[in-house]
């Protein structure tokens, strides 16, 4: 059981515009939205909060442009709060992530049983925030989850491993979980709830704001110098021949079939093994 579920959701313009001529970066405050993983975090928070009968608080760090999205969350039955961070794209990139985590934890105003975050933010993109939040709270962290659900009294999470494997884990509370934008879709509010929340005031947390982690002296478009390449040697005919391999001998195409499915599979595996893409020991396949 839990009393407080907190979702840390980032709300920003997901399609930052880069001027093709000057490289200047601009964001449209009207386009501020949750990324797929942030929306998944909100949905997980709502589901788990509802299952436990706990308060769900959705917290975001951003400017007033986030309020419209937070009102939508409000209409879904969660509490909302905003940490008033505002700055240019470059200033945001330079933000001290650890200080931001501190500010967010301070804004929660209590000890949460579960914190759900997105596994990556849409633009700052470090994915480090959940770890800093877990550190501030002194709780365990479960990163990169594709599912998060209650099984009996246990909070179970699942995440991807290499080679297509999955890992299921029991997550002890309190914990910080970060989720991928997969498996769930943020619900839509009913029309009466949307109307009720349409003009609601979003509370702003009064906490010390994070400063920059690095001092930005300037920002400009990336204009890498062109690489110096040596002039091509040989005649144009020789270069064409080298590029196309027109006069080289090639292994002729292998015609397989008509054969049935097992024979075709064997032929494919044989080809892959012959060319060094497969080994019997690694795959456990018995080649015919």
């Amino acid at each position: 059981m839990a009393d407080l579920v907190v979702v840390l959701a980032r709300c920003t313009d997901l399609r930052v515009e880069v001027d093709p001529l000057t490289g200047a970066i601009s964001r449209d405050p009207r386009a501020a939205a949750f990324s797929a993983s942030d929306a998944a975090a909100v949905e997980h928070g709502l589901r788990l909060g509802s299952a436990w009968g706990a308060r769900t608080l959705v917290l975001t760090a951003g400017g007033p442009e986030c309020d419209a999205r937070l009102r939508e969350v409000l209409s879904l039955g969660a509490e909302v709060r905003r940490v008033p961070v505002r700055g240019s794209y470059v200033e945001e990139l330079a933000t001290d992530e650890r200080a931001l985590a501190k500010a967010l934890v301070a804004a929660i105003g209590g000890r949460p049983d579960l914190v759900v975050c997105a596994d990556r933010s849409s633009d700052r993109g470090t994915g480090a925030l959940p770890a800093f939040v877990a550190h501030e709270l002194g709780v365990v962290q479960a990163p990169g989850l594709v599912s998060l659900e209650l099984v009996g009294d246990d909070l179970m999470g699942e995440r991807r491993l290499d080679y297509g494997r999955r890992e299921r884990m029991r997550i002890p509370l309190p914990a910080v979980c970060s989720v991928e934008g997969a498996g769930v879709r943020l619900r839509r509010a009913s029309l009466p709830a949307s109307l009720a929340a349409a003009s609601a005031v979003v509370p702003v947390a009064e906490v010390p704001l994070p400063g920059p982690a690095v001092r930005v002296l300037g920002a400009r478009a990336s204009r890498p110098r062109p690489r110096h390449l040596p002039a091509p040697t040989g005649s144009s005919r020789e270069r064409l021949l080298a590029l196309t391999g027109a006069l080289l001998s090639h292994e002729p195409p292998t015609v397989v079939g008509p054969v049935d499915a097992p024979e075709a599979a064997d032929a494919l595996l044989d080809f892959l093994a012959r060319n060094g893409y497969l080994s019997e020991a690694r795959t456990g396949w018995a080649l015919s």
Partner: peptide
């Protein structure tokens, strides 16, 4: 009618 739940207005 709207495309939201309880969407008749």
């Amino acid at each position: 009618r709207t495309d939201r739940q309880d969407g008749d207005l």
